[in-house]
Design a binder for these strands. Structure first.
Length: 528
RNA sequence: GGCCCCUUCGUCUAGCGGUCUAGGACUCCGGCCUUUCACGCCGGCAACACGGGUUCAAGUCCCGUAGGGGUCACCA
């Protein structure tokens, strides 16, 4: 029997990390064994803008490279993949359940059920509906209707015996049937509820393994009941531990995005992201531009593989020490047996280290390709870029080394593209490196003359030039490096100084030094 | 509260009865490297929730206790 798994998001408008982790495990499990992974949209709760709310979710999966064999946009033999378009199938299932006596029409008013429930709670007893308004005959139904009542369809759950569930992650889990409620599967208006729909669809779509978050564990008995009563063969179940909030054991929740921003690491990452989108003059949704939402990472230029690798390890492990996995290796090694039982909390810091490693391992050519769009969107580079831009960006990327954590970080180095008179200077840096040292200006002046005589202006030449200068003047290299850096970049931190000058090129380098030597008041009005 | 699940360093985890004076990773703290920043390198702090069993031997098996969490909708 082929392995078929699914992820069934409801259209909420965004895709959060926990959902991605669940989808990833489903995807790995199926695709690693030559099976299929499908996407189904659980929109039984009528939603007007399904498409709009779905876009960020599908885009997120596309970006991550989690592809689906069947589902929205790709279709498949079991279409449609929207529950809102499959209502006829559910109606048929409800009829079958009603006919066999596994379900019944119930005319209780919501407040009547609530009253019984409250009474049981007061008495400290488990609530079991007494089926007082159950219509098991048409005569009864007519009576209730005469009273002006409307009906829903409820499951007629067994009231004795137990269910032994063999969960692929948790092992044997036992439930007493009598504890299960007569859940509603169809509303008064005829629409069907999640539990019914999901069981019917999983069967119709030939899902072999239902891999989902632990919150669904307690829903499983009623779903198994429905499947059994409908004569379906059961899928295997695997309940994953949920992804917990950073620094807490609570489940990561869609409704607490604000709260997560109060965590320091989160705030820092968000700030980092904000800095990038600000430079792009890009307007972001303050509510969902959040490190818990996948879209955040896409916007600022994370590597999908890094995110997947981190998420893989959130609740799963390979052995005592191995943490880095390529996509192919994930597919090869993933098993449900090695999924942990306890919840794992989301740690931004560790995610960042996966990102760092992945970024460091990326060939310069690919980095340039990732970063060019950011420069274009910031209008620093034309689209398409002119021929000298590519090599220049590449020089920057190579000189930056590990400093580029995400693609958007290229915008930290846009000073390489700005005109001489547009460059701004950091006040403290100027004072410390140009004003305070008595010989700074004199050294800068004579070093400038040496630079001007250089035949070629590559890294090696500049390096050699400065070392010769240091030797000739009998100074320490630190006495000239800092002054040159501040004079040419306006800042006290940056790349290696030889890289910096080589990237700027002779013309820019000399022009920038000349501006400083020319007595231009650096600190006003354009200076900072 | 009922039902269900979970419990190894602050965090993610290795450990499937002896090789555990408990290993790795992130964080943190020292140090090295160094023209700044970052990276890198070396070193350090830090955990088997508790109590009973079973066994020659328990982090590893069993039972309790405690703690944490999930779920109890005409949401998904």
């Amino acid at each position: 029997m082929p392995i078929r798994t699914r992820f069934a998001p409801s259209p909420t408008g965004y895709l959060h990390i926990g959902g991605v982790r669940t989808a990833l495990f489903n995807w790995l499990f199926a695709k690693g064994q030559g099976g299929q992974f499908l996407l189904r949209i659980d929109d039984t709760d009528a939603n007007r803008n399904v498409e709009e709310a779905l876009t960020p979710i599908l885009d997120g999966f596309r970006w991550l490279g989690i592809d689906w064999d069947e589902g929205p946009q790709v279709g498949g033999p079991h279409a449609p993949y929207y529950q809102s378009q499959r209502t006829d199938i559910y109606q048929q299932a409800v009829r079958q359940l009603l006919l066999s006596g596994a379900a019944y029409r119930d005319f209780a008013r919501p407040e009547e059920i609530a009253a019984q429930r409250d009474a049981a709670q007061q008495a400290g007893e488990p609530f079991t509906y007494n089926r007082q308004w159950m219509a098991d005959t048409d005569v009864r139904a007519a009576q209730f209707e005469a009273e002006g009542r409307t009906s829903v369809v409820r499951l007629k759950m067994p009231r004795e015996g137990e269910l032994i569930l063999d969960d692929l992650v948790r092992g044997e889990v036992r439930f007493q049937w009598a504890r299960e409620q007569d859940h509603v599967i169809q509303r008064a208006d005829g629409s069907c509820l999640y539990h019914l729909a999901t069981v019917v669809d999983d069967h119709a779509m030939e899902i072999s393994h239902v891999i989902r978050a632990e919150e669904h564990l307690s829903n499983t008995p009623r779903q198994i009941f429905i499947a059994q009563q409908l004569g379906y063969s059961l899928p295997r179940f695997a309940h994953l531990p949920y992804v917990a909030e950073p620094g807490s054991k609570h489940k990561l929740s869609k409704r607490k995005l604000d709260k997560y921003l109060k965590i320091r690491e989160f705030a820092q990452l968000k700030e980092h992201g904000q800095r990038i989108t600000d430079r792009l003059s890009r307007v972001v949704d303050a509510d969902t531009f959040n490190p818990v939402i996948i879209d955040f990472y896409e916007q600022i230029g994370f590597l999908p593989d890094a995110i997947l690798n981190y998420l893989l390890l959130l609740g799963w492990s390979f052995d005592a020490s191995r943490e880095d996995f390529t996509r192919a290796e994930m597919l090869e090694h993933f098993t449900l047996q090695r999924v942990n039982k306890g919840p794992a909390s989301f740690d931004v810091q560790k995610l960042l280290t996966f990102q760092d490693r992945a970024m460091q391992g990326l060939p310069p050519k690919q980095k340039v390709a990732m970063m060019l769009p950011y420069l274009q969107q910031a209008h620093l580079v034309s689209d398409p870029p002119s021929c000298e831009v590519g090599p220049k960006v590449r020089q920057i990327v190579e000189a930056a080394g590990d400093r580029l954590q995400v693609a958007g970080d290229i915008l930290d180095y846009t000073d390489f593209f700005t005109a001489v008179d547009q460059l701004s200077y950091d006040k403290k840096a100027v004072e410390k490196r140009l004003h305070k040292p008595e010989d700074a200006i004199a050294l800068l002046t004579s070093f400038r003359d040496r630079l001007a005589q250089l035949d070629s202006f590559d890294v090696e030449s500049v390096d050699r030039c400065m070392h010769q200068f240091v030797e000739a003047e009998e100074i320490k290299i630190g006495q000239i490096v800092h002054a040159v850096r501040v004079a040419t970049t306006g800042k006290s931190v940056g790349f290696g100084i030889f890289d910096t000058l080589a990237i700027l090129g002779r013309e820019q380098t000399l022009a920038r030094i000349d501006r400083v030597l020319g007595g231009d008041s650096l600190l006003s009005p354009t200076g900072i």
